[in-house]
Simulated scan of single mutants.
Amino acid sequence: MTTAVRIAPAIPAAPAHALVVSDRPPVTSWSLRYFTPWWTATAAEDETPPDTRPPTVDARVDADQTAAVTQLSTADGYTEDTYAGARTLVHRSPGGSVFASQPAQRLAYHVSPDGRRAAVFGQETEPVALAAARLARELVRAQLLREGWVLLHASAVVREGRALLTVGAKGAGKSTVALTLARQGWDLLANDRVFARPDKSGDVQLLPWPAAAALGFGLLDGLGLYDTVRALVLSGEQLHPTQHPQVSRALSAGDRAPQWNEKRNKELKCQFFPDQLVSWLGCTLTTHATAAAVLHPCVSAGPIAPEAEEAAELRASDFFSAATEDRYPDLFRLAAGARPDPASVRERLATLPRRSVALGHHAQANADALARLADTLLKAG
């Protein structure tokens, strides 16, 4: 039996949608679970004629198709890139079709010349389900970019529809700010990425980017959540499969020390499904908001967060583009023709109250300082 899930952002101002179709119910169930907390996801029988479908991902567990498309991906003139952290081989045919494969994951992809039809093939259900959800998200992203939305490197928490955006490079403290305030009653809109677009009134509207949330041991421990997460894992509950095995072993052993990769240049973190932010960590998620203020954090060596200072405006590097996208480059050319305008978002956000703040290593001091600062910024906005 073929099953399908339709996904879309949860507000009419973002008319983008995609369909995930599979003959394996666990594949579509994965997308239903993955997108529901932040977007709209609806299970449906796939009765729509192919020529009238929305942009569609056809996901199949099929060893023969995987081998056939993998062979096409290595035709003369193929290139190598990294997509979702995995080595990816890509061949673009003269007719415009894209064939790609990820050998380590035993996955293969075929995308039509118009970018509206994508197929993913694999040999196991879980990798296919994960890849299909990513592709569906890419199809929606492409439509949003064409509608003028941009993707901002930021976390966001919301109170009464008004959002505090937290921007900064990796390690600046975006997740710390978001989770700390979410534990104090703010709604969580985004952990690391957020769509943004100015509206006719001059406000900047925000939408979430559904994704696994990466949270380090130090943050979980500081928020008093490490023991909760460990107990759930020991009881047999599963975190997101992209979590590094080293993190899983340390968590099972009760090791609270931050985990690092072999080069010690990247912290390895727990990876949570979006719904686990609610059921495990006690957060409340929300589907959209209007930007009201901007916070620029950094991590201080001291134990106490000092007073906040006036912050600089956003930089080009605070937006994801073809040049700065680090995990999901548009290898499949789904966003061809899109011309998003980060400058207009930067200009609007520059008019909002904004502060910089250094976060110390004392969780309660951070929480107290952030609560005061967030309230002040929202009132000023």
Rank of each mutant, 00 (worst) to 15 (best):
I7F: 07
P9S: 08
I11R: 12
A16F: 01
A16E: 00
V21S: 06
R24H: 15
Y34A: 02
T36R: 12
W38Q: 12
W38K: 00
P49G: 11
T52L: 13
V57G: 01
A59Y: 01
A59H: 06
A59D: 01
D62L: 05
D62S: 10
D62T: 01
T70A: 13
Q71V: 11
L72K: 03
Y78L: 13
E80F: 06
E80H: 08
D81A: 14
A84D: 03
R87F: 08
T88R: 06
R92E: 15
S93M: 05
G95Q: 12
R106K: 15
L107W: 00
L107K: 03
H110D: 05
H110M: 12
R116G: 00
R116P: 00
R117H: 09
G122I: 03
Q123C: 04
E124D: 13
E124R: 14
L130M: 14
A131L: 05
A132G: 04
L151E: 09
L151W: 08
L152W: 12
L152N: 10
L152D: 04
L152A: 09
H153P: 05
V157L: 05
V158I: 03
L165M: 14
L165R: 10
G173R: 09
K174P: 14
T176Q: 06
V177T: 08
T180I: 01
G185A: 07
L189K: 04
D192H: 15
R193F: 00
A196P: 04
A196N: 09
K200M: 02
W209D: 12
P210I: 13
A211G: 10
A214K: 13
F217K: 02
D221Y: 07
L223I: 08
Y226C: 02
V229Q: 11
L232K: 15
V233W: 07
Q238S: 13
Q238K: 12
H240K: 08
L251A: 05
W260N: 00
K269A: 07
C270T: 05
F273Y: 14
P274Q: 00
P274E: 09
P274M: 12
S279Y: 04
L281Q: 03
C283D: 04
H288P: 00
H288S: 15
H288N: 11
H296Q: 07
C298V: 01
V299T: 14
S300G: 08
P303W: 15
P306E: 13
E307V: 09
A308T: 07
A312H: 09
S321E: 10
A322G: 09
E325L: 03
R327Q: 13
Y328S: 14
L331D: 01
G337F: 01
A338T: 03
L349C: 05
A350D: 05
V357I: 15
A358L: 14
H362C: 11
A365W: 14
A371N: 07
A374G: 13
D375L: 11
T376E: 15
T376M: 02
K379S: 13
A380S: 12
A380T: 07
G381A: 09
